[in-house]
Computed example of a mutant assay.
Amino acid sequence: MIKEDFITLDKLCSLYKVKMSFFSDLNEIGLIDILTIERTQCIHQDKIVDIEKMIRMHHDLNVNIEGIDIVFNLLQKIEDLQNELIAVKNRLY
């Protein structure tokens, strides 16, 4: 685990102007994984794109945490179905 691959929640809170409880709620429902590195709560940088989407949904569209969970689960199902469709098409050719 390389420390440079992680971003602190404090930094994200100040950058995106959200409360720490927003990230805690996302962690509780399983949308993000918060890790503690040297007593500091962090998120892997690979999740930043998803976090930005969640913040935009929450701020711009007033979607609550449960709604964000539903949207991300549906997006994952769509992606899985698209991958399955590609696999089936590849078998046909």
Rank of each mutant, 00 (worst) to 15 (best):
M1D: 04
M1H: 09
I2E: 13
I2T: 03
K3E: 15
K3H: 07
E4G: 13
D5H: 13
D5N: 10
D5I: 03
I7D: 09
T8P: 01
T8H: 06
T8A: 10
T8E: 08
T8N: 05
L9S: 06
D10E: 15
K11V: 14
L12T: 05
L12W: 08
C13A: 02
C13H: 12
S14Y: 13
L15K: 12
L15R: 11
L15G: 00
Y16T: 01
K17F: 07
K17P: 02
K17D: 11
V18E: 12
K19H: 07
M20C: 05
S21A: 13
F22Q: 10
F22I: 06
F23H: 02
F23T: 08
F23W: 01
S24V: 12
S24I: 13
S24K: 11
D25K: 09
D25P: 03
D25I: 01
L26E: 04
L26M: 04
N27A: 10
N27T: 03
E28N: 12
G30E: 11
L31S: 10
L31V: 12
I32F: 15
D33A: 09
D33T: 09
D33F: 09
I34Y: 07
L35E: 03
L35P: 00
L35Y: 05
T36G: 01
T36H: 04
I37Y: 06
I37V: 14
E38H: 08
R39L: 13
R39P: 00
T40A: 15
Q41I: 02
C42Q: 11
I43P: 01
I43Q: 03
I43D: 02
H44K: 09
D46M: 12
I48Q: 04
V49G: 10
E52T: 03
E52G: 04
E52D: 04
K53F: 08
I55G: 12
R56L: 15
R56A: 15
M57V: 08
M57E: 14
M57Q: 14
H58P: 13
H58V: 11
H59Y: 14
H59S: 15
D60H: 07
D60I: 08
L61N: 04
L61H: 06
N62E: 08
N62H: 10
V63E: 01
N64R: 02
N64T: 03
I65Y: 04
E66I: 12
E66Q: 14
E66P: 00
G67E: 08
I68W: 01
D69K: 12
D69G: 10
I70R: 05
I70E: 03
F72Q: 06
F72Y: 00
L74G: 00
L74Y: 09
L75K: 00
L75R: 00
Q76E: 15
Q76T: 14
K77F: 04
K77E: 15
I78D: 00
I78K: 14
E79L: 13
D80S: 11
D80R: 13
D80C: 04
Q82A: 05
N83K: 09
N83D: 09
N83S: 07
N83M: 08
N83C: 07
E84F: 10
I86W: 03
A87Q: 10
A87I: 01
V88C: 00
V88Q: 03
K89D: 01
K89F: 00
K89Q: 00
K89H: 02
N90Q: 03
N90R: 03
N90E: 04
Y93C: 12
Y93W: 08
